[in-house]
Design a protein around this nucleic acid. Sequence first.
DNA 1: TTGTAGGCGTTATCAG
DNA 2: CTGATAACGCCTACAA
Lengths: 335, 335
Amino acid sequence: MVTLKDISEFCGVSKSTVSKALNGQSDISKETTERIREAAQKFGYLPNAAARSLKTNKTLNLGVLFVDKTSSGLRHEYFSGMLESIKSAAESRGYDITFISRNLGERKMSFYEHAKYRGCEGVVIASVDFTDSDVIKLVNSEIPTVTIDYVYDRSTAILSNNLDGMEQIAEYVFAKGHRRVAVIHGENTSVTQKRLASFRNTCNKIGLEIDEDLIKEAHYHDPKLSAMATKELLDLENRPTCIIYPDDFSYIGGMNVIEHRGFRVPEDISVVGYDGILLSQMLRPKLTTYKQDSEEIGKMAVEKLIAEIEEPRLSVPEIITVTGKLLEGGTVKEI
Amino acid sequence: MVTLKDISEFCGVSKSTVSKALNGQSDISKETTERIREAAQKFGYLPNAAARSLKTNKTLNLGVLFVDKTSSGLRHEYFSGMLESIKSAAESRGYDITFISRNLGERKMSFYEHAKYRGCEGVVIASVDFTDSDVIKLVNSEIPTVTIDYVYDRSTAILSNNLDGMEQIAEYVFAKGHRRVAVIHGENTSVTQKRLASFRNTCNKIGLEIDEDLIKEAHYHDPKLSAMATKELLDLENRPTCIIYPDDFSYIGGMNVIEHRGFRVPEDISVVGYDGILLSQMLRPKLTTYKQDSEEIGKMAVEKLIAEIEEPRLSVPEIITVTGKLLEGGTVKEI
DNA sequence: TTGTAGGCGTTATCAG
DNA sequence: CTGATAACGCCTACAA
């Protein structure tokens, strides 16, 4: 490995001069700087990140916390898209990304310990059990964090606008004339609560009484449960004319049931998804859905995190809402 | 930040004693070790990875190269599943994962430089343009690498068994009585070449002449192109009785066309996918497909990489083939 | 069994 | 403008 010392010996100057020249300090002469730069280039010199961060206390390293009990975490396009975006936003700001986990080899450590050990200057927290005490410990530590789709008092949060999402969906569906609208929702999280509240509010706004039989629980990203809920809905005396699914992928389960019963979408029943994943736009008819802007969410998360790292004084925990948009497909019939 | 020195002062021993005790060296007395451990616990001592690696020349850090022109990289479940598996395999061996990229902030650097700078002890290379000179430079460097689905002379490669995959698909389809079998394949890569060769071989084995009109090019993970190819196939005088798609996701494009023409799967036409992603098993009928074992591939990649890092003497570049399995769905009719 | 001293590669301070 | 020196936190001969 070629070090500062090698360059300095070759150029006949001191290590400090080389260091300064390479870091573009102003107090080194143009010529010397040039000479040193060339030598560094020639020898393929690369600074040693460990040594540098030991000295500067900066690692230019961000942690990403991405756990999922069901391990469907990265399989969910909402999250894999977000990760891509986190990755490229971090890169463009000069930061690297390290996954934070709980077990590093034999050694069990908390998320906080792992992040600390790796010298992460901040951590983006997404797709975890936010009630996990280990996550809470991390958020309450001195390490800056940004959470996604969950709010803690002490941490900046980036939220996909679930209120707007559900409102837009509901308004769209109502505008198409639907009044018996079913909602299959995901497991009980704050995201789910927001979507449901938003649905109820929007119903209220137009004076629509909600038939509680049309509200069914399922899980996110689980077509089987949504299929079951769909069955129950189709078995009702007074069937809904439209079903809103927890997400696009779950709709696949509902789609099968609907087709199996010999119903057609949207002629016999209308459907709406959520997320706007690639798949939704490949189906025919295209699935009407609300596209969450996972790209923007990831980007904002990184920007806010870096802002807090670099300017802790100027940063206060914020709640930032990222609004998506309704993608009008062909799965909601005018009635 | 609490350091070795803090602990040593508190315990009234020297830094080296603390270091040894914490690392479980045998030459420290039981009691002292215990006392030091307790103090470390109490103060929440964590070793500083940068300092440690500066000294030991070990970082316990693996790089992952995951680029994609189309940026559908992580959106493709084959890769996101693999990443999950790489992540957990690395964690369980005590390694962390850092994404390698080309631009770290302002500074443009090569993949090799980035990996070197971050002190990656090895790099898993997947989902990139393998002809990129930068990738080649990395592979030919002193940093151990493992490539996925591509073979270089100098690097261990983990290959999904595309020969077996296509062979199993073809044999299955032939066994069901199909003789006019169309293949829509992805862009021209070594993976594609293998699948096609395998298809041709299997045809040969049963003495089946291939109708070149039934071989169509599309792209991986691109339902639109597969939809177009499907159209062309359905427009043929002498239609195929079965279509093999480049991957499960691309099949969605074909599915739309087929349905739009009023054909049913599998009654009117049989179809087969490739990959075995979640979606394929959610469709009704389930898509008959070949499941690539992306989990095993990721795990093997990490194991081989770590083996080479820790035992360079014993390691030679290997080519490891990971076989998947045919998932029999209901999309191929017996004729 | 424990402690001392030195150095890993870098940067920062301050003197020349 | 340049260089000597110390220090970041840790590990490891080697000495005691």
